[in-house]
Amino acid sequence: MRVGEAPETDWFVVIVNGPAARAEVVAGLDGVRDVLLPLVLAGRADAAPDSPAGMLAAIEDPALWAPHGEGDGRPYWHLWVPVEGGSVSVQRLTEPPPQPERTLARTAELRALLADLQALLRTLSGGRAGPG
């Protein structure tokens, strides 16, 4: 990776707009497929190359993504496609999302630091209890 270049990730945010609107952060193109497949099976999409069905068939092909913008110049930057009553957009994340176990560990560290700080403040205030 060059200086100033965003790291490559295998994470995407998929936003479905319309009657069954939702947004999901998914891992890899398989995760994108998992979101698109129900739209195709529900008949909300045709097989045109720029439809979810067409996307599903060609999702590994960087050429599918290219017309939707250069982004950071790497394949699978982002794409958008209309579906019945809405649209689907897919955006590759440039940073991996926080992992729950890492977030929980960091939260535990911060709680311990705050408890130490609270004890120190109580000592400095002569033992008077404060809020909390």
Rank of each mutant, 00 (worst) to 15 (best):
E101C: 12
G86C: 04
P75G: 09
P49I: 03
R44A: 12
L37R: 14
L121M: 00
L110V: 11
V40W: 13
D30K: 00
R122Q: 13
R33D: 13
T94Q: 14
T103A: 09
R92I: 13
G73P: 08
G127H: 00
R122T: 07
P100K: 10
R102C: 05
Q99E: 15
A57M: 11
I59M: 04
D116L: 08
I15Q: 03
P131K: 07
R102F: 07
P62G: 05
W11P: 01
V13L: 08
S87Q: 09
I15G: 01
L29S: 01
E95N: 03
S89N: 11
V40H: 13
A23V: 12
P82M: 08
A23C: 10
L110A: 05
R111M: 10
L37Y: 06
R111V: 15
E84P: 03
P19N: 08
D116M: 00
L41P: 05
R33S: 12
Q99C: 14
G43A: 13
A53W: 07
P82G: 08
G86H: 03
P52E: 04
D116P: 00
A21T: 06
G71W: 13
V14N: 06
H78C: 06
D30E: 08
V81A: 12
L117R: 00
M55L: 12
D30F: 01
N17D: 14
L41G: 05
V16R: 11
D61Q: 04
V81R: 06
Q118N: 01
V14T: 02
V32I: 08
R92Q: 13
A53I: 12
A105H: 09
G126D: 05
T123N: 00
W11L: 02
P82I: 11
A21M: 01
G86K: 02
A42H: 05
W77C: 07
T103V: 11
P38I: 15
P100I: 11
G127Q: 04
V13Y: 07
P98H: 14
P38T: 03
A63C: 03
G54C: 14
D46N: 15
G127K: 01
P62I: 07
L36S: 04
V16L: 12
A129N: 10
W11F: 09
L104A: 15
L117S: 01
R74C: 02
L110D: 02
D61S: 09
A45T: 10
R22L: 15
V26I: 10
D61Y: 03
E24W: 08
G69I: 05
P52A: 07
E84V: 08
L56R: 09
A112I: 14
L110H: 02
V88H: 12
E84T: 05
R33K: 15
E101S: 15
A115P: 03
N17T: 05
P62A: 09
D46C: 12
P98M: 15
H78N: 05
E24C: 01
R102Q: 10
P49F: 03
E60K: 07
D34M: 09
A21F: 02
L36K: 05
D116S: 04
L41R: 12
P62R: 06
D61V: 03
A105F: 08
H78L: 04
V83C: 01
L37G: 04
I59S: 02
P100V: 14
L124N: 02
E109Y: 06
P75A: 09
A119D: 15
L56Q: 09
G71Y: 11
V83Y: 02
M55E: 04
R44F: 08
A58K: 03
I15W: 06
A42N: 10
Y76C: 07
G54R: 13
P97K: 01
